[in-house]
Design a protein around this nucleic acid. Structure first.
Lengths: 142, 142
DNA sequence: AAAAAAATGCAATCCGATTGCACTTTTTGG
DNA sequence: CCAAAAAGTGCAATCGGATTGCATTTTTTT
């Protein structure tokens, strides 16, 4: 049986694992991120708090990003979204799975079970990163 | 032998074909768009003029977009880019080919010879649009 | 040519992202 | 344990691209 309050240990471990000092704010934010089933924007995050400064959240996300705890998700809406990296992920820039953006509920899901398809480009183009965004209706909205 | 000045007819025809009234501004903008080999942002466009108002360009592009003469290209940079639709294109939202964004020269190319790969999603997700962005180094920069 | 409609240009606004700086909390070294 | 240094936080302000309001100009209609 777990005796820690609210099962906080895994959160602390995750932070430490990435070399991030566990401040109250960061613990809170990570807890929220862990609950999300889709990529969140700064705004999304902000609405989950009562009285938090946008900028602090912004910088918390920035710290998380720099330490590879989260990564940006480009879902084609122009708004930056974030998602947790998997524990073993060492993503240089962005992660490599497919993202699905629901045009109705505006949520962006990570389609973890899909591999990026192989794409043939003219010889001299050097691929560094592939981003596949699918737009449509998600399970709940279709 | 073509006798028209500067081969302007095709430009006028393109505008008319899409039901766009050919003002001086629009002819100029379309001519520039026809010369591009990659997707352009509003800024890119602006730098090709001496004294044009951003907003006019913006609205010109908007008109073109509404009449399906151009379409938006999302290259993951967060900045909206535009590219000409092919003559027979009737793209509802965005076009369906792959875009390549060079991280060095910042140009975004349309990879017209590549088909969008088939992607399997969980059953109840309804795909409306697929956008593939590849980042890396282009021919010239690699 | 006059009236109506469309296009244009300037100023201003909007909104998310980001920075500056002062204040607070945490860490470090004596 | 305390003082200095470092790190984190919060508020105000800035930045940059996108977009709108409105007055003026140009084009179309009658």
């Amino acid at each position: 049986m777990e005796s820690g309050c609210d099962g906080e240990k895994p959160v602390l471990e995750k932070l430490e694992y990435r070399g991030i000092k566990p401040t109250a704010m960061r613990i809170l934010v990570l807890k929220i991120l862990l609950k999300q089933e889709y990529a969140v924007s700064l705004n999304d995050l902000e609405t989950q708090f009562e009285n938090v400064d946008r900028v602090t959240l912004f910088r918390t996300l920035k710290t998380f990003e720099e330490h590879r705890l989260i990564h940006r998700v480009d879902d084609g809406t122009g708004m930056i979204k974030y998602a947790l990296c998997s524990d073993d992920c060492d993503c240089d820039l962005e992660d490599l799975h497919i993202h699905f953006h629901c045009v109705k509920c505006k949520k962006t899901y990570c389609m973890v079970n899909n591999d990026i398809p192989n794409i043939q480009l003219p010889v001299r183009f050097k691929i560094r990163e592939v981003n596949v965004i699918i737009k449509g209706l998600c399970e709940k909205c279709s």
